[in-house]
Design a binder for these strands. Structure first.
Lengths: 237, 237
DNA sequence: GTCAAATTAGACACTATTGTCTAAAACGTC
DNA sequence: GACGTTTTAGACAATAGTGTCTAATTTGAC
């Protein structure tokens, strides 16, 4: 789902959608529908006709824009990856720099992350498709590995490093802490998302709060420890 | 892969396999091959002929034993689920009751869990298939949800409760702690397993050690808290 | 209104797959 | 060695999907 307008179109059903959307953006319509169907059926199970119906477009139009099924598939993956990456970076920019309450601010950050990246439609798409088609298209998802969870991991690690030098956290391996932070946030969520359910806002907040509390119990600097003595940054390998 | 003998058969290739295995157990041969192919290709992408070749069996034999493709699929899922469940229970029985070193014993336990349940061929199969076909066959994987990670969670929670009452751990929500323990153990592993790679023993041990140290920093009882601060072992990725 | 480009429906050939059927072969048991 | 069962190879119809082609229609720009 690309934006609220299209969500509204989806809601009205395919009948009205025909002329509702400017014909200049059939490509977007196709990409959205294809993402939906590929996610639901997998690459092999998805049929071009099904995508055409869902996109309110003739099959031939799909073949005009994207030469063949595989071309369409890679286009969809790259589209979703780009959207997710940009969303990811804008969220990373909201990381609590000088936190008022570390627990509250980290929790809110974790909620933003899960709600807009990890647990939304795009996140579900990437999770499913990387899992089912990742081995078949290694170079296609290599970008996801590097710029998706890979990048989020190193970015988070850098942010944790800043908090450590500021004296709020105490840890030796920032990358490890970042991976564990993400793992803890997902701990309560993955069972829900595995079955396609979208967690409610309340569930997201509970999961984030639980994760952050445990994370801080493990990594918050002891109150007695002055922020003066900090371990040196270990080179990231 | 059902047992070492069959692994040997696989290694010799399909040519000799024909008569090598007693014909009484064609069913097992079919189940193994079907698991392999379903896991690799997904339900829609897997073809009966492909399974037949991999099982060194004629297509008709498959239809004799399992009426249709979907019957075979559910049989495979139930077979893998049963195997995983029994393996799971035997591993849960090895949970450190009266631990000598909590860190060492919990780490060793986590390694057993990942090596024999979560990261082996069956674990990969279930993860992939639950993800890709879980929404299509909800009742089929409902058992997995309850008796797989659901059961492992509650079982672990009970074991953590015992350790807590024994004074080794301190926590309020045992179920939450169990989910977080599993999440932490998977933190370093899921990126590897997502792309089909099997973690080495060394990676498994490192991941377990990292997880357990963070877990204990968050949850070990205050008395034993002092000597718990150690540098983490180096990262897996 | 005109025109070029985009879109459409539908037919089409081609391939792959499912599931059935049959007759021959292999097997295990006696 | 004989017999009933299992397995096998192959042909087979039926179905579904991919990708192409064409001719008609719609669209947007002028």
């Amino acid at each position: 789902m690309r934006n609220p307008k299209e969500a509204a179109h989806k809601a009205t059903g395919p009948i009205l959608g025909h002329t509702q959307r400017g014909q200049c953006s059939k490509r977007l319509s196709i990409l959205d529908a294809a993402a939906e169907v590929f996610c639901r059926e997998g690459f092999a199970g998805a049929s071009i006709d099904e995508i055409a119906v869902e996109a309110c477009v003739s099959r031939q139009t799909i073949y005009n824009h994207y030469r063949e099924k595989e071309t369409l598939f890679t286009a969809v993956v790259e589209d979703v990856m780009n959207r997710t990456n940009s969303s990811l970076y804008s969220i990373l920019a909201t990381f609590p720099d000088k936190p008022d309450s570390l627990e509250d601010d980290l929790s809110a950050f974790a909620v933003r992350l899960t709600k807009n990246c990890l647990c939304n439609q795009d996140g579900k798409f990437l999770r499913k498709l990387v899992q089912s088609e990742g081995e078949r298209y290694p170079q296609l998802f290599e970008g996801w590995r590097k710029h998706g969870p890979g990048k989020i991991g190193t970015a988070l690690a850098a942010l944790f490093a800043r908090l450590s030098y500021g004296g709020a956290l105490q840890m030796e391996d920032f990358d490890l802490a970042a991976r564990q932070f993400l793992a803890l946030v997902n701990a309560d969520l993955q069972i829900l998302t595995l079955f396609g359910e979208s967690p409610t806002d309340e569930q997201l907040e509970t999961a984030a709060r639980n994760a952050v509390r445990t994370f801080l119990r493990a990594y918050s600097a002891p109150a007695t420890n002055a922020p003066a003595s900090q371990p040196p940054v270990k080179a990231v390998g």
